[in-house]
Amino acid sequence: MATTLTRSAPPPTPPRSARARHGGWIALFVAPTVVLFGLYTLWPSLSSVFYSMLEWRGLGTDRSFIGLSHYERALADPLFWRSVGVTMAIIAVTVPIRVAIALVLAIMLNNPRLPLARLLRTAFFLPVVATTAIVGIVMGFVLDPSAGPVNTLLELLGLPPVDFLGSSDTALGSVMAVHIWKWMGITMIYWLAALQTVPMDLYEAAEIDGAGTWHKFRHITLPMLTPFAVIITLLTVVETMQVFDLVLTMTGGGPFFSTLVTEVYIYEQAFTSANPNLGYAATLGVLFGVLTVIVVGSLLLITRLVRGRKEVTA
């Protein structure tokens, strides 16, 4: 969204006199956002950078400046890098699946003549609304190795039971699946929105020409949706970087670090470690923020390059 905005045409320029006349209003309209944003986003970001250079123990209130030594430690911290790996793996796996499932559902549910379409939309959106804490508890039951329905089903199929959340081999996959389930609804809504921009008469014209479902999808829907795919994927990536709550309630990062995402590791360092270290937690936070910006930035760059090439070849 950000990119599309900055690339969109500059705003209409009202006559000079109008601008002068409106100066006060403009300031008034921007002020709340500038002030609040400065206080609650910019200032905390800068403070975090400052904290990251402090020796700030959990058990005391003393803070002393230690420069960049936390950064040295963080760059050599295997658990930090492991957590970054886990976070990236979650993004790499869940984002494409989530975006794809959501697209298929959105196309089906966008059909105006589909019975119960709105009820079904609500149903698929429902997990988004549910409180994460309780989702963690329910999923414990659903994925239970001895009595859960998934394993009951596996047993019926003659397959061995799987310890979904308790084994370090499967815990990450299980968390990914639940994450997709929980948040797919919002991506579906994004796609539904994008689909509103495809003119209905195009489909109708195609149907008159005898086009099948696949044909319509391939030649109308897909080309029209391509530009949105970038934005929707990006939004999904950003949302996925915040898997914190779900992981904390489902596995707490375990078993044996297998689902330790970066935010959980930072949280541990700051709040639950035997000897919490707020300065170090801030350092990890800053590094993670930088990594996020790099990931998102390079995704954008790649998209732009790919698009650019397409335009050239076309």
Binding site: W56, G58, L59, T61, R63, F271, T272, S273, P276, L278
Partner: peptide, 17 residues
């Protein structure tokens, strides 16, 4: 003890605050 440790962390957090 465990919770104590975590609380202590927040304690410090908020102490600074």
């Amino acid at each position: 003890t465990m919770l104590g440790a975590s609380a202590a962390a927040l304690t410090a957090t908020l102490a600074a605050c």
